[in-house]
């Protein structure tokens, strides 16, 4: 049990990004950078509309050029998510999706070679057991975890388990984060730091918050070697903008909405593939902006 005092600088591992992982997130971002682009990080929840179709949808995103995949583990109380993602995970849970299905999805997608991060609220991780969750994720071929409601201050057990199993760990920063919080998070992350572009929950927005660039710059200054921007990032224009200053573009709700609104699985895959392709093409550096 983590007894670190809140707000204190919990002692963290000295390991830094760059250590070899299975399907390493850092390597995927660096490879995209070598091509003069920001990495495309695509989110979909497992089990929506069902497990098989969600896996098929992720494959379509990978075929269209997603560099990293973020697999959402459905949770009953997703306080960081807006109506689109909440609706999808609620439907997935109503359909009977379990934690084990996320592990199976990781296993099914691992052969693609694309790094797979599981995005999970802490309750399912804690209920499974932090160490067991990490062991299962590693043996399924996952690259690591994104934890939207777990801050490094409370993450002692996960920091230890991620070391044991060589998993990446992605924590979030927000425009409200102080510089000392940014340093704490940057130090704790391995893979990249997830920069929330705006104060708020996931969901599509017309314009990208001006706070995103400033926060990315501050996050790098705080020691992050890679910073990727998500929350409210949904269009190719957003991707083009983010690519000028960040290492990766994280898109979720826009994909989930396409999946939700498609008439057939084939139409869903086509729509996902189209958007992923356009996002990847747009996320290039120095694109005349």
């Amino acid at each position: 049990m983590n007894q670190a005092r809140t707000g204190g600088g919990a002692p963290l591992s000295a390991s830094r990004p760059g250590r070899a992982n299975r399907g390493s997130v850092g390597a995927a971002i660096d490879a995209a950078a070598a091509e003069g682009r920001a990495a495309l990080i695509a989110y979909l929840p497992v089990g929506f509309p069902d497990v098989a179709e969600s896996i098929g949808a992720v494959k379509a995103l990978i075929d269209a050029g997603a560099d990293i995949v973020e697999l959402g583990l459905p949770y009953s109380d997703p306080v960081m998510d807006g109506p689109v993602i909440e609706g999808a995970v609620t439907a997935a849970l109503a359909g009977g999706v379990r934690v084990a299905d996320t592990m199976r999805a990781v296993e099914a997608l691992a052969p693609t070679g694309v790094p797979l991060l599981v995005m999970s609220y802490y309750a399912p991780i804690l209920a499974t057991g932090v160490e067991r969750f990490a062991a299962d994720l590693a043996s399924a071929g996952g690259a690591g975890l994104i934890t939207p409601d777990l801050i490094p201050d409370e993450a002692g057990a996960w920091l230890a388990a991620s070391e044991t199993h060589g998993l990446d760990r992605v924590f979030l920063v927000a425009p409200s984060s102080s510089d000392s919080r940014l340093r704490l998070v940057a130090e704790a992350c391995r893979g990249f730091v997830y920069v929330a572009s705006t104060m708020g929950i996931t969901g599509e927005r017309t314009t990208l918050s001006a706070a995103a660039k400033d926060l990315t710059v501050r996050t790098r200054a705080a020691g992050a070697s890679r910073a990727c921007v998500g929350v409210g990032v949904s269009t190719p224009a957003h991707a083009a903008e983010v690519a000028q200053y960040a290492d990766g573009v994280i898109v979720g709700s826009a994909f989930v909405r396409l999946l939700r609104d498609a008439e057939t699985p084939a139409a869903a895959r086509a729509a996902l593939s189209d958007l992923a392709g356009r996002l990847r093409q747009s996320a290039v550096r120095g694109a005349g902006r």
């Binding site: 707000g7 802490y122 801050i151 979030l172 927000a174 409200s176 919080r181």
Partner: peptide, 21 residues
């Protein structure tokens, strides 16, 4: 606070940490 034995803490998005602080 923040801990009562092994209970309590702040298992909450980073975006709220500044407000809670």
């Amino acid at each position: 606070g923040p801990y009562f034995g092994g209970y309590g803490g702040r298992f909450i998005p980073e975006a709220l940490i500044t407000a809670l602080d």
